[in-house]
Amino acid sequence: MIVLKSPEEIELMRTAGKVNLEIFEGLKQFIRPGTTTMDIDRYVEEAVKSHGMIASEKGYCGFPANVCTSVNEEVVHGIPSKDRVLNEGDIVSVDLVVEYEHYMADSCRTFGVGRISDEAQRLIDTAERAFFEGIRFAKEGCRLHDISHRIQEIVEGEGFGVIRDYTGHGIGSEMHEDPPIPNYGKAGKGPRLQKGMTLAIEPMIVQGSYETETLLNNWTVVTEDGGWAAHYENTVAITDGEPDILTI
């Protein structure tokens, strides 16, 4: 069941989303060669607590950290570790859910570590562009898969692959709500978008095959062929006009 949000509920989510944005702006300077993924987790933990909010990923289905940190061929759900040192040229996706007054905002960015290759930068940029092209259809009256289809067009047009096994999702007082939001599909399909829907739209794209596997820790998802992955996400509210991005 898709839960429509009131203007007051959306404002609570926006308040959380402002913290997401602030943290990502700080991580642009914080992440550098020699940083560990556990350093990132601690940075986020302190920043969220300083606002009196909650990092909702910690403890979710047993997840042990405040954020997911996915490096290079890791697509999603990477677990921060003091032993995972970021090197010059790596890329790392940081996925963060902040909760305020029982309402959540979810976003992700992929950061380059030091100087990265042109191809890695193109991968990151394509994920971001696919998001903004996709949300051109995040309007009342459009179909959900209009967003999905446009994301797929952009990503595959650049020669990259779109992850099939994981999707975006509705969000609000629960981290994962209906509807699931694939990053591929046919236009004109899926539920019709309505004012009050709040969606975590998140292109997850890869250099090669979209086939994935999960590591023995039962969390970290990697590409089967070792291709690198980028992930760009924001929480978006559907209005009677243009989409309202709550995490920017």
Rank of each mutant, 00 (worst) to 15 (best):
S173Q: 02
K58Q: 07
Y100E: 08
T223L: 01
D90W: 01
G89R: 02
T214R: 15
G227D: 03
W228Q: 10
V221R: 10
N218K: 14
N72Y: 07
T110L: 06
V67R: 02
E101I: 07
E211R: 02
T15C: 03
K18H: 12
E177N: 14
I181S: 04
P203E: 09
E25S: 13
E73D: 15
M13V: 15
P80K: 04
Y103H: 14
E202T: 13
A138P: 06
D90Q: 07
Y43P: 04
D41K: 07
G196S: 06
E46G: 02
K58P: 05
S50W: 04
T223N: 00
D146T: 13
R143F: 11
L199P: 04
K49A: 11
F30E: 08
R136P: 05
T167R: 03
H77M: 13
H51N: 09
G17T: 09
R192D: 03
I2R: 13
R143D: 08
L4G: 12
G112Y: 09
K189Q: 12
V221H: 02
E133H: 07
S107R: 00
S50V: 05
Y210D: 11
T37G: 03
P7G: 15
A55F: 01
D240F: 06
D165F: 01
F137N: 13
N217H: 05
S117Y: 10
L27F: 08
I116A: 00
I135K: 07
F160E: 00
V222G: 02
E177H: 09
I248P: 00
I238D: 09
Y184L: 09
S117N: 06
V221C: 04
I54T: 15
Q29N: 15
E101L: 08
H102I: 08
K189R: 14
E25F: 03
L193D: 05
S107F: 01
L27C: 10
E211L: 02
L96P: 05
Q194S: 09
G114W: 15
I154V: 14
I238C: 12
E242L: 14
D225H: 08
P33V: 15
L199R: 10
A200D: 05
E128I: 09
Q207M: 09
V44I: 11
K186H: 08
C108E: 11
G114H: 14
I31R: 06
E128K: 15
E211W: 00
E11D: 15
R84P: 00
G190W: 08
D118I: 02
E140W: 13
K5D: 00
P191K: 12
V221P: 03
A55L: 06
G241M: 05
R42A: 06
L4F: 10
K195P: 03
E73T: 04
T235I: 09
E233N: 14
V67M: 02
I163N: 03
I238N: 12
Y232D: 01
A127I: 06
G208C: 02
H169Q: 10
S148P: 01
A55N: 11
G17A: 14
L215G: 01
Q121V: 00
E9A: 14
K82F: 03
T223R: 02
E101M: 11
I238Q: 11
T247M: 12
W219E: 07
D90R: 04
Y103S: 10
L21W: 12
A130P: 13
Q121F: 02
R32D: 07
V85Y: 01
D95I: 06
P203K: 06
I91R: 02
